[in-house]
Structures are given as C-alpha cells and as structure tokens.
Amino acid sequence: MSVEVLPESTLRDVMDLLVRLVEAAGALIIFVGAAWAFGRFLLAGIRGGGVGRQFNRIRLSLGRFLALGLEFQLARDVLRTAIAPSFTEIGQLAAIRTALNYFLGRETAAERAEIEREHRKEADGSRAPTGPA
C-alpha cells in the first residue's frame, strides 16, 4: 500500500514556484551587485583620481555578488532536477559547479592578492621620509 502525501501534479507546481523564486532571487542579487558596482565606479570617477585605485576593489565586490547570484542559479537547477533527475542532469550540474567554483576561486584569490599589494605599496609610501632631515 502506497501513501501519497501530495499528488505529483501539486508537487510539480510547488517545485516550479520554488524554482522561479530562487531564480528571481539570483537575478536580483546579480542586478543589485551590478548596480552597486556601477555606482561605486561612477563615484570614484566623480571624486577624481580614484577609479584606478578603486577598480580592483569594485571588481572584487562585483565578483562576490556574481558568485552569490550564480550559486542561486545553480540552486535553481538543483531544484529543477529534484523530481526524477537523469544521470545526465546530475553530471551537468556537477561539472558546472566544479568549474564555477574553480574559476571564481582563482579570480577572487588573484583580486585579493592585488588589493594586498596595493595596501602594502600605500603603507610603504606613507612610511617614506617626507624630506631632508
């Protein structure tokens, strides 16, 4: 004897709603990050001379928003395959997740290293002698 908690059609409708909500959340995160980065870029340009120095910080922050938004998009794909996934879908998700984590991790580490180098240059410059003693 089999007990059905929810009819399959209702379960599919609920999952479709959840997929759409998670997809919208991911898109919203990416949009907010892009708008924030653009705003910071404009402010740095308006203030003058700061775009070059702020560029890597802005880019790193945007990368974090993108990574989070893409994680939501991946969650959407996981939800989409929650009901009777095929081995092909599971394999595709695993490949996408692996590649995404690898490349975003590399990019984030490189940006952090660049920001640390900038901080060291600024700190070394502020310790330089100011004139003849």
Rank of each mutant, 00 (worst) to 15 (best):
E107I: 05
L62I: 02
I115A: 10
A94V: 15
N56T: 06
P85C: 10
A128T: 15
Q54F: 04
N56W: 00
R112A: 10
A24D: 06
L17W: 03
R106N: 11
R47H: 08
E118N: 14
N56Y: 01
S9W: 05
T130I: 15
G69H: 04
L70G: 08
R106P: 01
V14A: 04
I29C: 10
L79C: 07
R106K: 14
A24V: 14
A133P: 00
I58E: 01
T10M: 03
V32Y: 02
T130D: 08
R120A: 14
R106Y: 14
E122W: 11
F38L: 06
P129E: 11
E23I: 07
D16M: 14
A113H: 12
V32C: 10
A133Y: 09
F72M: 12
E107P: 04
A99H: 08
R20C: 11
S61H: 03
R57Q: 09
A84D: 07
L18T: 03
R53I: 08
A84V: 08
G49C: 09
R12V: 12
R53L: 07
D124Y: 13
G48A: 09
S2I: 14
T130W: 05
H119R: 15
L60Q: 13
R106H: 11
A25C: 13
S2Q: 05
R112E: 12
F72T: 03
D77S: 13
P7W: 05
E89I: 03
A82R: 00
A37G: 01
L42N: 02
